[in-house]
Design a protein around this nucleic acid. Structure first.
Lengths: 272, 272
DNA sequence: CTGACCGTTTACTCAGACATTTTATTGTGT
DNA sequence: ACACAATAAAATGTCTGAGTAAACGGTCAG
């Protein structure tokens, strides 16, 4: 198994900021800098340090500032280009693209967005996507689930019950549960949203943990979804999942500081 | 094992001037090969020419086969890595990743998938995603649409009426219409699905054109969606859009040969 | 049969140079 | 004075060549 990304800066002990004249002995050739640079720049862009339209400094200058060769820096920029974050042209330089060109559903981009404090607006957007996709996914899963999917969900539920959302293992099981549902749809396109949904799920629990000492027990809601899917009850699966997401949204928007949306009436549809 | 020697890579679309006749000693440097290589390899992977698990040949060999320098080849591979198509490690070489790690919602990846004949299964998946997202998006749009969104939709409808789906301009207007709805949701995460939805829309019309000499007139369905959104009628917008997508799915699955609309045991593929 | 060792293969990085593209400026003609 | 073409400069794109670190696969000892 591979986890999304353990983003620790592999950059050597000295940071990019130049230490006074300490030159290491032939530091790092062949050490996989590229990933570190990409992470650094990705987080810088997603956090708003560089803003859309800004022009970055030239390749030579940037590479020197990061203390890497121009090739390594260029490969990093190519990756950012591939994710729609920047664009480079021969004389115009490398510019940050407007937000609507970013591939924010890319797992790595998503991780960069959540490396800092994501904006309330962004979290709300992800939640809305979740509210759109997950109930429909549950309905599809109820039609097409196989034994192995049910086993995954059941195992995840067991771990959630045992460890609760207070432990990381429990939170991971929560994500696994939702991921299993997406897999059970048998739809690759929907499964590709796993990272996005997972991020929203993760932040649900984050906000829950922050806001209340004793959060609502999530197990019953999850069990209802599981049982409906196991029974092949399509409509009930959709309803149960919708209820689950609505409750999560309620908790989260409440914890994020009351009425966070620029689009006001979110609470109105919560009529169960 | 031997790859054809004259794999003249497809030069950037803008210029295919020389390069085919006289082989100069100073063959084109500084000509933006990277994008061409990425496209070539991306299409090769998405079309199944390289299959998941396959190991590509080494950098030097591949670069020579493509007749570019190692740097250009490497930058291309980095882009494929960024999109989750391949993974390279020092001694293991560069391998194609399993399908479920591909970022198939990435606009470029999607384009590569449709560069060849996409599999019926893939088109079905995209359609299901569309059926999930678009009705919900229409409901959100009915709540939050602004004048400029309505204008976009109206303009697109006008062009569709004038040019029909027989002309490319008309088909582009169709995509613009659906895109405007996604923009009207005011949700960046949902808007990021624009490329995926657009691809599904595009193939709807493709299949329509192939199958019937006189396809169903799409205008009335679109008008119903537009009017519901303009009127702010949330439920009606959702219903109208669901109806539109259902009809499109009907046409498409019929044109794609048989009952591929239902997720039946159509595992016709060998080896999963 | 298990575990540690070691060489080979491969990607990763560095460095310096040149070509190309694009923008900004200048010059010219009407 | 304005439009348009030629030119200069700045940045990315590419090439070459070399050395380094990491992971795989076999080998050998326990």
């Amino acid at each position: 198994m591979d986890k999304p990304e353990n983003v620790k800066l592999i950059l050597p002990i000295e940071d990019a900021d130049d230490m006074s004249g300490t030159d290491r002995p032939h530091r790092g050739t062949g050490r996989r800098f590229r990933g570190a640079i990409v992470n650094k720049m990705g987080v810088a862009i997603l956090s708003g340090e560089y803003q859309p339209g800004d022009r970055m400094r030239g390749e030579i200058e940037s590479a020197e500032a990061l203390d890497v060769s121009r090739s390594a820096y260029r490969e990093a920029v190519q990756i950012l280009t591939a994710k729609g974050l920047v664009e480079s042209r021969p004389k115009a330089g490398t510019r940050i693209l407007p937000r609507d060109r970013w591939n924010i559903l890319d797992p790595e981009v998503l991780a960069w967005a959540f490396a800092g404090e994501p904006s309330a607006e962004f979290v709300r957007d992800l939640f809305e996507l979740r509210a759109v996709v997950e109930p429909a996914a549950a309905k599809l899963a109820a039609e097409r689930r196989r034994k192995e999917h049910l086993k995954c969900m059941k195992d995840a539920l067991g771990i959630m019950r045992r460890d609760t959302l207070a432990r990381e293992t429990g939170r991971a099981a929560d994500r696994d549960f939702h991921d299993a549902i997406l897999r059970a749809t048998g739809n690759g396109a929907i499964l590709a949203l796993s990272a996005s949904i997972g991020a929203a799920v993760k932040w649900t629990t984050q906000f829950k943990l922050r806001s209340r000492a004793l959060p609502r027990d999530p197990i019953p809601d999850h069990v209802r979804v599981y049982e409906a899917i196991a029974a092949g009850n399509v409509e009930e699966a959709g309803k149960a999942m919708r209820n689950l997401v609505d409750l999560a949204l309620e908790d989260t928007s409440w914890a994020m500081g009351g009425d966070s949306g620029k689009h006001a009436p979110q609470r109105a549809k919560a009529s169960n």
